[in-house]
Simulated scan of single mutants.
Amino acid sequence: MNRERTAGKPAGEDGVGIVVPFLKWPGGKRWLAAEHRNVFPKKYKRYVEPFLGSASVFFALQPERALLSDANEELITTYRAIRSRPKAVMDALNRHALKHCDTYYYEVRSMRPTGLIERAARLIYLNRTCFNGIYRVNLEGVFNVPRGTKNTVVLPTDDFHTLSRVLHGAELENKDFEEIIDQSGDGDFVFADPPYTVRHNTNGFIKYNEKLFSWADQERLAAALARARRRGARIVATNANHSSIRELYAYHRFAQRTVSRFSSISATSSSRKQFEELVILGGRR
Rank of each mutant, 00 (worst) to 15 (best):
117 I>Q: 06
226 A>D: 03
99 K>D: 00
160 F>D: 07
281 L>N: 07
70 D>V: 02
116 L>R: 05
103 T>M: 10
195 P>L: 14
203 N>C: 09
14 D>L: 08
244 S>H: 03
196 Y>R: 05
165 R>P: 06
128 R>H: 10
256 Q>F: 05
212 L>A: 13
60 A>E: 12
229 R>Y: 09
115 G>P: 03
244 S>K: 02
266 S>P: 06
230 R>T: 13
254 F>Y: 04
50 P>F: 00
159 D>C: 06
240 A>S: 10
176 D>H: 08
115 G>V: 07
57 V>M: 09
113 P>G: 01
153 V>I: 12
134 I>D: 06
146 P>K: 00
89 V>S: 01
50 P>A: 10
17 G>K: 04
191 F>M: 00
61 L>R: 12
121 A>W: 09
66 A>Y: 04
166 V>A: 05
249 Y>C: 06
172 L>G: 12
3 R>W: 14
206 I>E: 15
252 H>T: 08
136 R>P: 10
92 A>C: 01
73 E>W: 07
221 L>H: 09
141 G>I: 08
42 K>E: 15
130 C>W: 02
2 N>A: 13
30 R>I: 05
266 S>K: 14
25 W>M: 00
258 T>F: 00
244 S>G: 04
255 A>L: 15
245 I>K: 05
56 S>Y: 02
33 A>L: 14
74 E>I: 01
46 R>G: 04
237 A>T: 03
192 A>Y: 12
156 P>S: 11
174 N>I: 08
246 R>M: 12
265 I>V: 15
257 R>N: 10
21 P>F: 03
122 R>W: 05
137 V>T: 15
212 L>H: 14
172 L>W: 14
2 N>G: 09
148 G>N: 10
89 V>K: 08
176 D>S: 06
18 I>V: 12
102 D>A: 14
200 H>W: 02
89 V>D: 11
206 I>R: 15
248 L>I: 12
264 S>R: 13
80 R>F: 04
262 F>R: 13
225 L>F: 02
202 T>N: 08
188 D>Q: 02
95 R>A: 07
262 F>E: 06
18 I>M: 12
53 G>H: 09
25 W>L: 09
124 I>H: 08
19 V>I: 11
84 S>Q: 12
254 F>G: 13
182 D>T: 11
279 V>D: 02
228 A>C: 11
186 D>K: 13
210 E>V: 04
54 S>F: 12
285 R>K: 12
202 T>A: 15
247 E>F: 03
274 Q>E: 15
75 L>E: 09
256 Q>H: 06
184 S>R: 07
284 R>A: 14
111 M>V: 05
61 L>G: 06
202 T>R: 15
102 D>S: 15
47 Y>D: 11
12 G>K: 00
171 E>G: 13
138 N>P: 12
17 G>V: 06
191 F>D: 08
177 F>S: 07
284 R>N: 14
128 R>W: 11
56 S>N: 08
10 P>N: 07
283 G>C: 03
91 D>Q: 13
278 L>R: 07
83 R>M: 11
104 Y>K: 07
46 R>M: 13
24 K>M: 09
